[in-house]
Write a protein that binds this DNA or RNA. Structure first.
Length: 587
RNA sequence: CGGGGCGUAGCUCAGCUUGGUAGAGCGCCCGGUUUGGGACCGGGAGGUCGCAGGUUCGAAUCCUGUCGCCCCGACCA
């Protein structure tokens, strides 16, 4: 039996909801797929659920193909496992916490690594039980500081999360690869363009991590890619290190007056006006060494100042900084920080002064000093002399100053070289739709998941975790498949296979429509049938377009001649077809 | 957390400047006409004007406070 609009729980809105900005949010609400319950929390209406289930079915099939077994954990979990791994506190305000009537702490799980690990620990203790991959499709909860864009960043969202358990590194590699392959099949079946980028493995002790990004302007992640195939999240981009230059024969550094030059731009202008280069080339920002002072707050609450030196033509990328210093938090040093460190002359900070080294753990300030990898030995710089209104010219790295290490802190720019030599990179925006991650032994270590190996020795299990944002994918598909009339679902995820509508007041149109529904369903297709009487054709056509089922059949004025129309939602084309041949004509 | 905007009917919004019985369109219900691009006529249901306090004879409107929501940014395996 077809699903009839007269009895279905579906209400379309004539106007756009006022609180929806992005296309997917606007259309999914207007077409009756979802309703907002609270910021970042949505109810699923029947037609929306069908799309969600279509996506989940594809994921389940490919998880099965990858040898993973489905389980289901509660979303509501006790505090203890998360306390053990430190995530109860590390997750900070992002965690939904609650208490039961006795005052015991619970949380709504943001991900389930802990309980998956403990489940396996409970039941397995031999290498013979491994490898194992298990997964669930579950709602996750994160108290986002700012939920936005409807389903794209919600506080409750559905995720497929899989976890693999191996006792050898090679086994982990194989499990990881199996999930990675499954992801490629899933996204291909969903018709979703994706780019696999190297991702930051983060502070959680992971070793290898890749993100599946869908290129889209609404994306929140910036990634880089080269024509030669390199792709990386901007946080994971690794700077190509130039060869060191010879130091012998370079002239000594000189301290020169540079009044009123607190910024790189003013410094370059003054240098060109007052101290032109002997070779006639103009000074540029790239000739200057910018020293940025940051304040780190470590997990234990201690505050540490760190100085970062980078070419003056590059900005500091705070996202890359965060990754570099995680789990510590980084921010710009405050006036109070400078006040406590009189060795730093703001606007004229540099690694060196005529009195000796200023930056570095062994220096006058004792402040840790990290350099951009481009600042190799033998490079010459204009930089602050730590004297008010003075800069030093020709300061040579490796001769006049050294650092405590290097750091990936500078912004990545289009045209920068890919680290694998595959050419210059371009920058693009993407939305993370999947993430595969070798966790290694971090969780197993902390939670004590060990098995006996072939030699009867206890070995710690090594794990992977693999996530796909189900509801986010749904929104992304909606985002990329619509026109000014409404949604246009790809057949693979369309809530119904065919939309049948009858127009006019002639009962013959409705009986023809019923006949068409039956014929289509006989071929195994699902049908949504607009059987509403007394609704004008314009409304019916408009709803059909808004709802976005790709194949539409119109039973109307042709039925007397035994003809209905096949309406292609994608192309807009309408083709007359004999009623008896509709099912075949759908292909 | 910073910046901006908004809370009035199921939805989209007007009314607030200048205080005086709460409005429109759409949707919904009843009757009738209409039926290939969001038709029309007549009748009707539906609102603590976010909340609290204040000013006033009288507050959706003015004042104070508060809560919530949306957008941008910060933040976000």
């Amino acid at each position: 039996m077809p699903t009839r609009l007269t009895t279905y729980f579906l209400r379309t809105l004539r106007e756009d909801p006022s609180d929806a900005e992005v296309t997917s949010h606007r259309l999914l609400v207007r077409a009756g797929y979802i309703r907002r319950q609270a910021p970042g929390v949505f109810a699923w209406l029947p037609i929306g659920l069908r799309v969600k289930e279509k996506i989940e079915r594809i994921i389940r099939e490919e998880m099965t193909n990858a040898g993973a077994h489905e389980v289901h954990f509660p979303a509501l979990l006790p505090r203890e496992p998360y306390e053990a791994t430190g995530r109860w506190t590390e997750y900070g305000d992002g965690l939904f916490r609650l208490q039961d009537r006795k005052g015991a702490d619970y949380l709504l799980a943001p991900t389930h690594e802990e309980v998956f690990t403990l489940l396996v620990k409970d039941l397995y203790n031999s290498y013979k039980d491994l490898p194992l991959s298990i997964y669930q499709i579950q709602d996750k909860y994160r108290d986002e500081a700012r939920p936005r864009a409807g389903l794209l960043r919600g506080r409750e969202f559905t995720m497929k999360d899989a976890y693999s358990f191996d006792y050898t590194d090679a086994g982990l590699d194989a499990s990881y690869q199996a999930q990675r392959d499954a992801y490629e099949r899933i996204f291909t079946r969903l018709g979703l363009e994706y780019v696999i980028v190297k991702a930051d493995a983060g502070a959680m002790g992971g070793s290898k991590s890749e993100e599946f990004l869908h290129p889209t302007v609404v994306g929140e992640d910036t990634f880089v890619r080269s024509a030669g195939g390199y792709a990386a999240n901007v946080e994971a981009y690794v700077t190509e290190v130039p060869d060191a230059l010879p130091i012998d024969g370079l002239p000594a550094a000189v301290v020169l007056d540079s009044p009123n030059t607190p910024t790189i731009a003013t410094l370059v202008d003054l240098a060109n006006a007052e101290y032109p280069r002997p070779d006639g080339r103009a000074w540029t920002a790239a000739d200057t060494l910018k020293n940025v002072v940051l304040a780190l707050t470590h997990l234990d609450g201690t505050r540490e100042l760190v100085a970062i030196g980078l070419p003056g033509d590059r900005e500091v990328d705070m996202k890359r900084i965060e990754v570099a210093f995680a789990p510590a938090e980084a921010e710009q040093a405050t006036e109070a920080d400078f006040a406590k460190n009189p060795a730093l002359v703001k606007g004229y900070i540099g690694p060196w002064s005529p009195l000796g080294a200023v930056l570095g753990e062994e220096s006058a300030s004792g402040i840790r000093f990290l350099l951009d990898p481009r600042v190799v030995d033998g490079t010459e710089w204009i930089t602050g002399a730590n004297l008010d209104q003075k800069h030093v010219f020709g300061l040579v790295a490796g001769r006049d100053f050294t650092a405590d290490g290097t750091i990936e802190a500078a912004e990545v720019r289009a045209g920068d070289p890919a680290p694998d030599g595959s050419g210059p990179v371009e920058l693009a925006r993407g939305m993370e739709i999947g993430h595969v991650f070798q966790l290694g032994r971090k969780y197993a270590d902390v939670l004590g998941l060990k098995v006996l190996d072939e030699n009867g020795k206890l070995v710690t299990v090594t794990m992977g975790s693999y996530g796909i944002g189900v509801t986010r994918i749904l929104a992304i598909i909606a985002e990329g498949n619509n026109d000014d009339k409404g949604l246009v679902w790809p057949a693979a995820v369309s809530p119904f296979d065919v939309y049948v509508l009858a127009t006019g007041k002639d009962p013959a149109a409705f009986s023809a429509a019923e006949q068409v529904c039956a014929a289509i369903e006989a071929t195994g297709r699902s049908v949504l049938y607009d059987d509403r009487p007394k609704v004008s054709p314009g409304v019916k056509f408009g709803d059909a377009e808004l709802i976005g089922i790709p194949k539409i059949v119109i039973a109307g004025r042709g039925v007397a001649e035994g003809v209905v129309e096949l309406w292609d939602r994608v192309t807009g084309e309408r083709t007359p077809v004999a009623i008896t041949e509709v099912a075949d004509a759908l292909g």
